[in-house]
């Protein structure tokens, strides 16, 4: 018996070889994967920066400092500054209700949260036009009261909220599901109030997941094109977000300026990826730490 076991151990080196591929196949696959990713991801990314600086550094900075570009940046930041916090509050509320309680209609709420992911951005913009546009349901009433939503900032904010609606909730629900309710129960037995429990126990334990959701939500909020394009009306200096500004410049053949603006968003995307990877590594390290602690239990 003991002999057989040790034999198996000795042969395991061969078995490991048996479950991997031959050298050539391995490097062939790596090459295919890297070429594919280079072709579709890296080269386009390089192209953005290359084109942005194609007319020199001065043109680059001039096109970024141009008033319309500035206005577009400000509007983009404003839309994100409203949409992201609202979706954070929603995401936390929805995740709290869904993961800490059992109630009828939970599945409906979960489906509703997923829905915007399945809706084309164009349709996302369209639904607000149908609701608030001049010929829409509430259009006449809004017109009477001189409230402008479509082709104005509120419409842009609404469309941005819609397309970024699921991000935070989707991130928090599985995380809070996994943590269960015992931390909250422990806090309550120790005399903490509901808000104390939330601020001191729940929020710190979900902070990395929350940050992750916020990062993704923000990237989409600042980069959304389709939905915002439908509701914006493309008024220069007023209802143009950065992605829309890029489109206008591009269609006017001002390529260097278009790519200069695009480079800002590409930079944001790279920062987003970096922060996201950092958070993921953080999470993995956390997990490993906990696992190691569990393993060394005396």
């Amino acid at each position: 018996m003991a002999g057989a076991v040790s034999n198996l151990g000795r042969r395991s080196a061969n078995i490991t070889d048996a479950v991997s591929e031959p050298f050539l196949v391995r490097w062939g696959l790596i090459a295919v994967a890297l070429i594919f990713l280079a072709l579709f991801l890296v080269i386009p990314l390089i192209a953005v920066f290359k084109e942005a600086f194609s007319k020199g550094v001065e043109v680059y900075f001039a096109s970024i400092r141009e008033p319309d570009a500035w206005a577009a940046v400000k509007l983009t930041l404003l839309a994100a500054a409203i949409a992201v916090p609202l979706n954070v509050i929603f995401g936390i509320s929805a995740a709290w209700a869904i993961t800490k309680f059992r109630f009828r209609g939970k599945q409906v709420l979960i489906t509703l949260i997923d829905l915007p992911f399945a809706v084309s951005p164009v349709v996302a913009g369209l639904i607000y036009v149908l609701l608030f546009g001049t010929k829409g349901w509430l259009g006449p009433w809004l017109g009477e009261h001189d409230i402008k939503i479509i082709f104005a900032v509120p419409g842009i904010v609404l469309a941005t909220i819609f397309v970024t609606f699921p991000f935070v909730a989707r991130e928090l629900i599985p995380l809070m599901e996994e943590q269960g309710t015992s931390y909250e129960e422990a806090a309550l037995t120790l005399g903490a109030s509901g808000w104390q429990t939330f601020w001191k126990v729940t929020l710190p334990s979900i902070k990395w997941g929350l940050l992750y959701g916020i990062i993704l939500c923000n990237a989409r909020a600042m980069g959304e094109f389709g939905a915002v394009s439908v509701v914006s009306g493309h008024i220069r200096g007023q209802t143009n977000t950065l992605p829309l500004h890029i489109e206008i410049l591009y269609n006017e053949y001002q390529f260097a300026a278009a790519f200069a603006a695009a480079s800002l968003l590409a930079g944001l995307a790279l920062v987003t990826l970096a922060v996201k990877s950092f958070l993921e590594w953080q999470h993995v390290r956390d997990r490993e730490k906990a696992a190691r602690a569990a393993a060394q239990q005396e």
């Binding site: 015992s182 129960e185 005399g191 903490a192």
Partner: peptide, 20 residues
């Protein structure tokens, strides 16, 4: 309410707050 009951409860998996 559990807050006012003044019971000491020890959970099966301890439920120690990991960030504290």
């Amino acid at each position: 309410h559990v807050r006012q009951r003044k019971v000491g409860f020890v959970f099966q998996h301890y439920a120690l707050f990991r960030h504290m």
